[in-house]
Design a protein around this nucleic acid. Structure first.
Length: 849
DNA sequence: GCAAGGTC
């Protein structure tokens, strides 16, 4: 038997299809797809199926001094048991094995991991094939010329694994232990995340150190034959045009001069044509950047692209390549779109061009093509809104890369008004070119009429504007990712995760991200004691070392030994400063949680966490001072920079994904609740208007007075609002109400529940929101909630979720327990009967996990 | 439980 091993299932399936001429069949072993035809089996890994770690005796942070990790062994352990089992089972029966992982360094290492797992089972020959895209020609060609694994290249990857683990783990443990931070709130550092964090911290330092300068700008409105346009005042400085006037006296003088002008004489007119080139093919970073301009976060952009890739609509979304491969035939791909209701006209017009010449970027890699549509077009209804938006972006981006450049005409008019120089820059789109198929870039024109030299124009108005220089701007997520890429930090697959990790670790918050005080302290501590870990030079050196290993100039052991020695010296320097560093980190973490003075004792109020895990505001003077304030029970609280004027407390924001909201000053919220009376709207359905003890004559009596509770609109001290029973806590009946806006009680009554309809009048703009009967409203809310939970199922697309729902398959909780990929695979294209059967298996625990 | 890199 012959065995082929690829990096991922998708590649295995496509290679099987090519090599078997479409005859391959699929079966599953331990939940892993195995493709078979004739005497051949093909299986896909899931990237690395083994990972590096320390031996178990190093596992307990408190038993081991971080410095001991510097010289600790590093071992490999399977991380994907089912895949390892499947691979080894197949390898045991194989007479020949071919490694067909991705054609890059990490692919070589993944290949070597498969090689070693297979070697435990067999002595059969193991070859390596390399191809730059999974197409008929390339794959057949590669398989007819098998090569050998490049163990040096794989060793280069292993050096990275070992060094990243040693440095990351040892220094992370050192910082966490010195600050006495255990559990989930450890303080992490790493070769990529820490320079990324320093990038953000450095920008924040620039912003804080920024000292604004005053300046003035002057404008005049000019008129030609009733055609008005704006011109800006400028003067010459060292032969360059300058618009900003830095002295107020100069600005006032120029303004008075300009105000005295009735007309302006045109001194020069310059026309220029400018070619506006279409975009280069999409790599991951440029894709994320474009997706952010339609409102998607980096994380969201990647998860949506992965869905579209798995469904077969776009190519692999993790790529550095910006050059389409030779086997991509743009005309054939455009042809796929000509009948489409939305893209058809654009595809036709692109095909009508004389020659189709795609743009190309600088980076040409061998593992994956730039992101482009596959030609299999989804029905719009099958995609969520975000998915469709991304799909259209990828299609249109491909269109743009094969479209013509746009042509602009720039018109610059310089005029003199009473001795003041004025200039106006106009631009006009002559040839829309690629903009016709690509609406994501601005085509805004600036109108300046045709004028001639020597012509006299009317000056209708003069304006002066006082301005200040602005600090540099914080970078958004996609800008940060571009910055990481330009510095060779991280990879196409990890950069967006790095940003996400900084959020998770409490190092950054908001969007665009801002560093917390903890982040400033971590970067400061690193700069002072272990400069390398925040220095991008560490990556540069590692890259050089890896290249040397790959070229056979040095080896894994020499490189890791040297790295251990450097790390050891860092620990010698750290040794005496442990207390100091820990104290600084602890103070900063506390500062991130500090709201302001306690009204009872004057110590600080802090965001704290109860033993049950819920958040509240408590005094740093505890246990002497027992002052507390409640916080909302959804989300993670963060302390903002806004201060409450009345109480001097920082406002609190609750982070809960798309349900994030600003809670404000917790003291104000509590006071508001204390000052607001409950508003009764009817009897409690649980305990009000119920039968009580029979009366003396034996007939049951309905009471709505004694004993029976009423429903009331209540405002709670934690800021939330609800409809609840006045007998709380004896009766716990309650219905939630929205957090924002004012609730009004209307005259209308619910037929079913007898309660008045409610109206939420938003404090912002927008129509009032008709909640209706609070009981009916809550029931509807629950239904919507359940529906969206199905959609949110990790890894399962909306389409699959619909099928699951249609087939009446089990509760969300059951599905959660199961492997989402397995669910997706199982459900695609199978009958309802099979779905029911499968549900039975899930219930029996056969498929779960 | 630590990193970064694959992949889902």
């Amino acid at each position: 038997m012959e065995l082929i091993v690829t990096e991922k299932d998708n590649a295995a399936r496509r290679i099987a299809e090519i090599l078997s001429d479409g005859s391959a069949s699929t079966n599953r072993q331990f939940g892993v797809n195995v493709y078979r035809w004739g005497d051949t089996r093909c299986v896909g890994l899931s990237g690395h199926v083994v990972g590096v770690d320390f031996p178990p005796e190093y596992a307990d942070w408190r038993d081991v001094q971080p410095v001991e990790l510097v010289d600790a062994d590093v071992v490999k352990m399977p991380t994907q048991e089912n895949i390892v089992r499947t691979l080894q089972g197949l390898a045991a029966d194989a007479d020949r094995i071919t490694i067909a992982t991705d054609y890059d360094r990490e692919g070589e290492l993944i290949g070597k991991e498969a090689y070693e797992l297979a070697r435990e089972e067999t002595d059969a020959p193991i070859d390596r094939v390399r191809f730059s895209s999974i197409t008929e020609n390339e794959v057949r060609e590669a398989f007819s010329n098998p090569e050998a694994l490049d163990f040096d290249l794989a060793a280069a990857g292993e050096a990275r694994q070992v060094i990243d683990l040693l440095w990351g783990a040892a220094l992370t443990r050192f910082l966490s232990l010195s600050a006495k931070q255990f559990g989930e709130d450890f303080i992490s550092v790493g070769r990529v995340q820490s320079p990324a964090l320093k990038l953000i911290v450095d920008r924040e330092r620039e912003i804080r150190a920024f000292d604004p300068d005053d300046y003035w700008e002057l404008f005049a409105d000019l008129l030609k034959d009733g055609d008005a346009f704006e011109a800006q005042y400028f003067y010459l400085e060292d032969g360059n045009e300058a618009e900003r006037v830095w002295e107020e006296a100069d600005a006032t003088e120029a303004f008075e001069q300009l105000q005295g002008a009735r007309e302006a004489i045109v001194e020069s007119v310059r026309r220029r044509r400018r070619t506006d080139e279409p975009p280069e093919p999409f790599n991951t970073t440029q894709y994320i950047s474009s997706a952010s301009s339609v409102g998607l976060s980096a994380q969201k952009a990647m998860s949506v692209a992965e869905e579209l890739y798995t469904a077969g609509y776009i190519t692999y979304p993790r790529t550095d390549n910006t050059v389409y491969p030779d086997d991509l035939d743009p005309e054939a791909l455009l042809d796929e779109f000509t009948d489409h209701y939305l893209f058809g006209d654009d595809a036709d017009s692109l095909l009508s061009a004389d020659a189709i010449e795609p743009t190309a970027g600088d980076e040409e890699t061998t593992d994956h093509p730039p992101i482009h549509p596959t030609g299999e077009i989804p029905a719009r209804d099958d995609l969520s809104e975000d998915e469709w938006e991304v799909y259209e972006l990828v299609v249109r981006h491909f269109f743009a890369t094969v479209a013509d450049p746009a042509e602009w005409e720039h018109l610059k008019v310089v005029a003199d008004a009473n001795g003041c120089s004025l200039k106006a820059n106009g631009k006009r789109l002559l040839e829309p070119g690629y903009h016709e198929v690509y609406p994501y870039r601005s085509t805004a024109e600036n109108h300046v009429p045709d004028v001639d030299e020597g012509e006299i124009l009317d000056v209708t108005e003069a304006r002066i504007e006082a301005k200040q220089t602005q600090p540099p701007r914080r970078r958004g997520q996609s800008r940060l990712i571009e910055e990481l890429e330009s510095r060779s930090l991280g990879t196409k697959s990890t950069r967006h995760h790095t940003i996400e990790k900084l959020y998770d670790r409490g190092y950054i918050e908001s969007d665009p991200p801002r560093p917390t005080k903890l982040a400033m302290a971590v970067v400061e501590a690193a700069e002072k004691f272990a400069d390398r870990i925040v220095d991008e030079g560490m990556t540069a050196k590692l890259e050089a070392d890896m290249n040397a290993i790959a070229d056979g100039e040095t080896d894994l052991e020499d490189v890791t030994d040297e790295s251990r020695a450097i790390l050891g010296r860092i620990f010698e320097e750290l040794h005496d400063s442990r207390e100091e560093i820990g104290e600084h980190l602890r103070e900063s973490m506390k500062a991130d949680r500090t709201l302001g003075p306690c009204p009872d004792c004057g110590e600080s109020l802090l965001v704290r966490r109860s033993r049950q895990g819920s958040y509240f505001v408590g005094c740093d003077g505890f246990p002497e001072c027992r002052y507390t304030l409640p916080l909302p029970n959804t989300g993670e609280p963060t302390v903002t920079d806004d201060t409450c004027d009345e109480h001097g407390l920082e406002h609190v924001k609750m982070l809960a994904g798309r349900n994030t909201f600003v809670h404000g000053c917790p003291q104000c919220k509590a006071d508001e609740a204390d000052e607001t009376d409950d508003r009764i709207i009817g009897p409690c359905p649980e305990c009000g208007g119920v039968e009580t003890e029979p009366s003396e004559n034996g007939t049951p009596e309905v009471s709505d007075a004694e004993g029976g509770g009423d429903l009331a609109i209540k405002r709670l001290r934690n800021g939330s609002r609800l409809v609840g029973c006045t007998r709380y806590p004896e009766c716990e009946y309650s219905l939630p109400l929205p957090r924002r806006g004012e609730v009004e009680v209307t005259e209308e009554t619910c037929d079913e529940h007898g309660l008045p309809h409610l109206l939420v009048v938003d404090d912002g703009e927008g129509e009032p929101w008709e909640l209706g009967c609070p009981i009916c409203n809550y029931a509807e809310y629950r239904e919507r909630q359940a529906a969206s939970e199905i959609e949110d199922l990790d890894g399962v697309g909306a389409k699959t979720a619909e099928k699951l729902a249609a087939a009446g398959i089990g509760s969300i909780d059951d599905l959660r327990g199961a492997d989402a990929a397995a669910i997706a695979d199982e459900v695609q294209g199978v009958s309802e009967d099979r779905l029911r059967e499968w549900q039975a298996e899930v219930n029996a625990g056969a498929v779960a996990d």
